[in-house]
Design a protein around this nucleic acid. Structure first.
Length: 695
DNA sequence: GAGTTTGAAACT
DNA sequence: CAGTTTCAAACTC
């Protein structure tokens, strides 16, 4: 910034264009751009470094995602000029692209109440434009995540943004101001709608090789979210925003797995990946899109708070997306714990919550890709033909199964039938799932409705105080690589076990009375069943191979037929210390939701609001938090995620390190210098996140 | 649809 | 923690 060149080469409104011009090239060849560029780059990043890394990246997971995001984005910036976001900038109208970036920046500042474009807006070397623009585009969006961190530290992010983007923003702002209002207005008007759409779009994006294509949308969402947070000044809204953010983060932490799974499927030509091929045709190793999709989903909940209304009128056939989101929102934002929302979605009875199949499809990359089918189906209406890349193999068994399940789910639309519990006990599937009862329910004297929100929450609180794991996922899905207490039986992607184990006496674990059987998982040593004949695997280590192939399919179908409750990814492999515990819970490193904080949970824990319910939980329990998934939302088998992604996505440590349930950023997350930043970016590609060793 | 069976949840 | 009761889903007829 202090280089003479910066003043000499004043950026114009179309810097990118200038850059491409012969004159520019000529100047470039003459000027000591190399040095200036190097310094400038460092300065840019140094400005970032000035901020406390911890403040900027309070969440290791978030940082991880952001960084990976950077990697991908930068990659595409340089290599892919046809990305949707940047295409304008890389095509004939380069200034446009830069302008958009600036616009984003401006909007971002405005949303945050910071308009600080006058500082150092002239000290920029033209040859840095590409990088500047890159940063301008990346940082604002990327930093949004940080802004939405549980810590709620928005300013650092903003500062960071200012330091990096202000220079350009200050110069090109005016030409785009007129578009800003329109843009913002559009955001407000179609916020919810967009959220929904974006979920699908991002879903596609997360699975698309391009990844960059969705940056714009994501940025919009992020900006919008930020705006929401700031605009809502009352405690209620603020709280909601925080909650949403927290959830969003928690989801972010979780979704990498999904993404990883997606990647794998994409590479294998999975039908569900039909719309995830990018124009570049290269797989995305960045889980950010996936994260975003999830984030958006959660964010929807937050932003949807204003739309909160009685679900009673909701019909199964109604706009499934919106309704589902609303339902989720209701539970989610108000829930004292996170057992609701994500954790509960899985339990949504078939056909009850269509959204769960679409929006949440991204969450249910379980052993079966049917979720993806859902995604494709849901996106089909909104996903442009261009999104379609790798056409699905409609004839694949997974596809068939998915269709089967979809039809099955669509056909049914029932919910609880409680008569005496008022739907305020775990007997009630809706309540247990963290959902309000809706019309399809046949319950009587139901209190599990928005109008009784306080009662619901209080009851839930009580239940959780009694049993922190009450709303925890009931099924743990482990990886085939894991050699856990279940031994060799745990070798298939579908391998999973009931967290607590069943206690069947007469059903021989061959009927749905048995939760293990119902979930389509084999019994484990944790089960206290008698005469176990579970076809999915006997607790004595019996034949689980049956769960493979057709039996597996039947199993999963069975699970999907009913609430298969929550399936949790067993992260034993990465958290062996937690995986071998004798108790079921201890076997769930980050399984669970209500109280347990797992790999995902950290994010959850990061929310003060959400943490309140975890007070009673032990440390280990807290570390096991994880959203639960129903049969349709089964967690992604770890084994299905590429190694790199797994490491990348999975939070390094799920153990709570902060008394107040907040995660403590690992040292390696800190970037004290631009060099570190850069090197870290490189390292992130190859170094598994679980390793806390700094670059 | 009514009644029975079953096992989880809740209670003591 | 164990035993009992309550509850609602699963199941049978």
């Amino acid at each position: 910034m202090d280089t003479p060149d910066k003043t000499q080469i004043t950026p114009t409104s179309s810097l990118s264009k200038f850059e491409d011009s012969p004159v520019f090239k000529y100047i470039d060849s003459l000027s000591p751009i190399e040095l200036a560029k190097s310094r400038q780059s460092d300065n840019v990043f140094s400005s970032l470094a000035f901020l406390s890394p911890s403040s900027l990246f309070p969440s290791p997971q978030i940082s991880c995602h952001r960084e990976s995001r950077f990697l991908v984005k930068r990659h595409h910036f340089s290599a892919a000029s046809n990305s949707r976001v940047l295409q304008s900038g890389n095509e004939s109208n380069t200034s446009e692209g830069g302008s958009k970036a600036v616009e984003q920046s401006d909007l971002y500042d405005e949303n945050l109440g910071f308009l600080n474009n006058d500082s150092s807006s002239k000290g920029i070397s033209s040859d840095l434009l590409d990088e500047q623009l890159d940063l301008v585009t990346e940082l604002p969006r990327t930093l949004k995540y940080d802004c939405g961190s549980p810590d709620g530290n928005l300013e650092p992010c903003d500062e960071m943004f200012k330091n990096t983007s202000v220079e350009v923003a200050g110069q090109e702002r005016s030409p785009f101001q007129r578009n800003r209002d329109e843009w913002e207005e559009r955001q407000q008007s179609f916020q919810n709608e967009r959220d929904l759409r974006k979920i699908c779009r991002i879903k596609w994006s997360e699975e698309s090789a391009g990844g960059v294509a969705i940056v714009s949308d994501v940025a919009d969402m992020l900006t919008m979210n930020s705006s929401i947070i700031h605009e809502n000044t009352d405690g209620q809204d603020m709280r909601t925003a925080d909650s949403g953010t927290t959830s969003f983060i928690s989801t972010m932490l979780q979704f990498p797995l999904d993404n990883a799974n997606n990647l794998e499927n994409a590479e294998s030509g999975d039908p569900s990946c039909s719309c995830k091929q990018s124009e570049f045709g290269e797989p995305v190793t960045d889980q950010t899109p996936g994260i975003l999709s999830t984030c958006l989903l959660d964010k929807l909940v937050v932003s949807d708070s204003g739309l909160k209304k009685d679900d009673k009128g909701e019909k199964c056939n109604q706009s499934s997306h919106q309704r589902s989101i609303r339902r989720r929102c209701l539970v989610f934002e108000k829930s004292p714990g996170f057992g609701l929302h994500l954790n509960s979605l899985p339990n949504i009875p078939k056909g009850q919550n269509p959204l769960s199949k679409s929006t949440l499809s991204s969450m249910k990359r379980g052993e079966i890709p049917h979720d993806k089918r859902t995604v494709v189906t849901e996106n089909s209406s909104e996903t442009p033909a261009t999104f379609g890349g790798n056409e699905a193999d409609d004839n694949s068994p997974e596809k068939k199964r998915q269709k089967f399940e979809l039809d099955e789910e669509s056909a049914a639309c029932k919910r609880c039938n409680c008569k005496r519990s008022k739907c305020l006990k775990l007997y009630c599937d809706c309540f247990a799932a963290g959902l309000y009862c809706i019309e399809p329910c046949s319950c009587q004297d139901c209190f599990n409705k928005p109008v009784h929100e306080n009662v619901v929450l209080e009851t839930r609180r009580q239940i959780e105080s009694r049993n922190p794991l009450a709303f925890a996922p009931k099924v743990i899905r482990s990886t085939d690589r894991i050699s856990d207490s279940w031994g060799e039986t745990n070798k298939t992607p579908a391998s999973a076990r009931h967290k607590r184990g069943c206690n069947c006496k007469r059903s021989s674990c061959l009927k749905k009375y048995c939760e293990c059987f119902q979930a389509g998982v084999g019994c484990s040593p944790s089960c206290r069943c008698e005469g176990c004949k579970n076809s999915f695997g006997r607790k004595d280590g019996g034949d689980e191979s049956e769960s493979d192939g057709e039996d597996l399919e039947a199993c999963e179908r069975n699970a999907s037929e009913k609430k298969s409750h929550d399936i949790v990814i067993n992260k034993d492999e990465e958290y062996p210390d937690l995986s071998v515990a004798s108790s079921d819970i201890s076997r769930l490193p980050f399984a669970y939701s209500g109280k347990l904080a797992g790999s995902f949970s950290h994010s959850i824990r990061s929310s003060p609001q959400l943490c309140t319910n975890q007070e009673n939980g032990s440390l280990s329990d807290s570390s096991l938090c994880q959203p639960k998934f129903d049969s349709h939302l089964q967690a992604i088998p770890e084994d299905e995620a590429p190694e790199v992604l797994k490491h990348k996505c999975l939070p390094p440590v799920q153990k709570p390190t902060s008394p107040n349930c907040k995660r403590v950023s690992p040292p390696h997350r800190e970037c004290s210098s631009s060099a570190a930043w850069r090197s870290r970016k490189l390292i992130l590609r190859s170094v598994p996140l679980p390793s806390f060793s700094p670059p």
